[in-house]
Design a protein around this nucleic acid. Structure first.
Lengths: 341, 341
DNA sequence: ATGAAAGCGCTAACAA
DNA sequence: TTGTTAGCGCTTTCAT
């Protein structure tokens, strides 16, 4: 077991100073006018013995960790997992590593996690924020730490963020259903004040209001155990036999809603037309294929990481703020046929 | 913008030595017989000013980073995302953070990533290894760094690992199909020498050989673009009209296979019975519901992290080696009905 | 063009 | 019981 060598070891071995080695290592040889010959000698030796700088020490010294903290609601969720993957690729390409965690939308957990990340001096944050962490985000901002929110934002905190056009998405989807002849359209969502969900609800309401139709809203408390999400859906559906269409507020709810309907032996779309938010492999393969509001995952991930990298590279002024809203696509399939009356 | 305080600042403020502060912070006050009074004073002050130790410095000093490196094939894959989530929870519970990456089963990429993680002095590794990184894993082992492999292992490297009983799983599934009266059973898999895939293939072969039935194996080269996976599946299916059943080697292939059949307007299960490896929400919701080999994700994640934590805590002797093989469950649904002849 | 040395924040051996 | 100090490995200022 050979001990890891340090920059000192290699300086000694070559009988030169650590400074030279450091400069050479950091590509500042030219700038410091170090002889070609020395540079070559050092590089060769380093290659030979397989020297690798200790990133920890580098970070302690420079204050830069080259780590990005990624905080998503739940890494096992299809949407976030895909975002995480795309962000990861871009981050590594740019010399950053990713340390991640799932917040579960739990405010206290998130606060702890932010502190942890701070102790580790991560260079930047990508967060899908739960409610109630305004203070903590502001504190990061005050320290000039780059923060990019996504999926939802905090209305009272001036950060960069990347979101989709939630309001228009559901407005549009609801309108589509209305246009297809549906009149008793429900919206099933999680009870939450987060912007993405409240915007989606608002879009739904707006469309109904314009058409002078009645709201049918079911808010479900989020829990991990899916049984306790399916159950209220089933109950809601049973209690509202007059419904002819349902709009689901998230992909998770869409999938579970499908399960609920399967249990109830409800025929989709004959007895109930449906649209889900957030497209999903499952929706395309289902019979009938489920119409869904597709989020441009690549677009979101791309903007998120670009924004963060720009901040990291100082390409955005500190007092500037970039907010990006991306349109969605209604992937029209088979679950909302024209309704015969 | 107030500067971050260090242990020195708080020592000065309280007119005591850094040692005392350090000991108190690390809960060694009792052991070092530091006065209750001082401990209290320090703790109170720390609370007051919100002092947080710099983990970077701690790690540089102690050589322990409290970070676990998680290397999966692809974090956006349902299976790995779920494992990642469970591992994350257990890791944070135990004071570890997770830095992750996706290997894409790319040997060179993985090598680079391992080096990166090493530069960061991560305390332990959890890896679903691609082929050809035996040397690199061995090098980690030689440095007494804990490594737990999962999903597949490296036959020539003596590491801890957690895998499922792949061979029996497909043997069992294939046998089940045979028992249901199917005779021309195909196995669609990715071309790879990785243990999980070769074991699955072997299980399939064994069952067919025992029943004196012919092999129908399609190996597909893995690529990111799903079109280039669906296409060969379609071709294979078209060229082998005599098939009456298909076993898919991974969840990814199962889902894409379903798409292929949809395109071909093949009736499942009447024209083609199917079983997929690795259960999936999609399979349960499909009509017909797809029979699948369910991997015990919680069990895998649990064993993986327990093994790693035990190593980290020195509860496993260095020369000892733990390999765990977990059984799977054949989730019997509707896609393999008894075949009338 | 190269080197000496301070210091990032922390831990722990040693001293007192 | 508490304090002094070396040093983890690196970067960078200042001197030469």
């Amino acid at each position: 077991v050979k001990k890891k060598l340090s920059i000192v070891d290699i300086a000694n071995a070559l009988n030169i100073s650590v400074t030279s080695v450091s400069f050479i290592l950091n590509g500042r040889a030219k700038e410091k006018r170090i002889s070609e010959e020395l540079v070559e000698r050092v590089m060769k030796y380093i290659e030979e013995v397989g020297y690798k700088p200790n990133s920890l020490a580098q970070s302690l010294r420079t204050g830069k960790s080259n780590i990005i903290g990624l905080m998503v609601e739940d890494i096992s969720n299809h949407f976030f997992a895909n975002i995480a993957r795309l962000i990861e690729d871009r981050a590594y390409e740019n010399g950053y590593k990713i340390i991640y965690c799932s917040t579960d939308n739990d405010t206290n957990k998130t606060k702890d996690l932010i502190e942890m990340f701070q102790d580790w001096h991560v260079d930047g944050y990508i967060i899908s924020p739960p409610e109630g962490i305004e203070k903590n985000i502001e504190s990061l901002l005050k320290q000039n730490l780059p923060v990019v929110l996504f999926d939802r934002y905090l209305p009272n905190v001036k950060t960069d963020y990347v979101v989709i056009d939630n309001l228009f998405s559901t407005y549009n989807a609801t309108n589509y259903m209305i246009g297809q002849g549906y009149e008793n359209i429900a919206f099933i969502t999680f009870s939450s004040l987060q912007t993405q969900l409240s915007d989606r609800m608002q879009g739904y309401k707006n469309a109904l209001d314009e058409a002078k139709l009645k709201h049918h809203i079911k808010e479900i408390k989020y829990v991990k155990n899916t049984d306790y999400i399916i159950k209220p859906i089933i109950e809601f559906l049973m209690e509202n036999k007059n419904l002819d269409a349902v709009l689901f507020g998230t992909n998770h709810l869409g999938a579970l809603g499908l399960k609920a309907m399967k249990k109830l032996r409800l025929k989709v779309p004959d007895e109930l037309a449906i649209i889900s938010f957030d497209d999903y492999e499952l929706f395309e393969l289902n019979s009938p294929q489920i119409t869904a509001i597709k989020q441009p995952i690549e677009g979101i991930a791309d903007h998120v990481i670009s924004q963060l990298l720009n901040r990291l590279n100082g390409k955005i002024k500190l007092d500037e703020r970039q907010t990006i809203t991306i349109p969605t696509v209604l992937n029209n399939r088979e679950s909302v046929p024209f309704k015969k009356r």
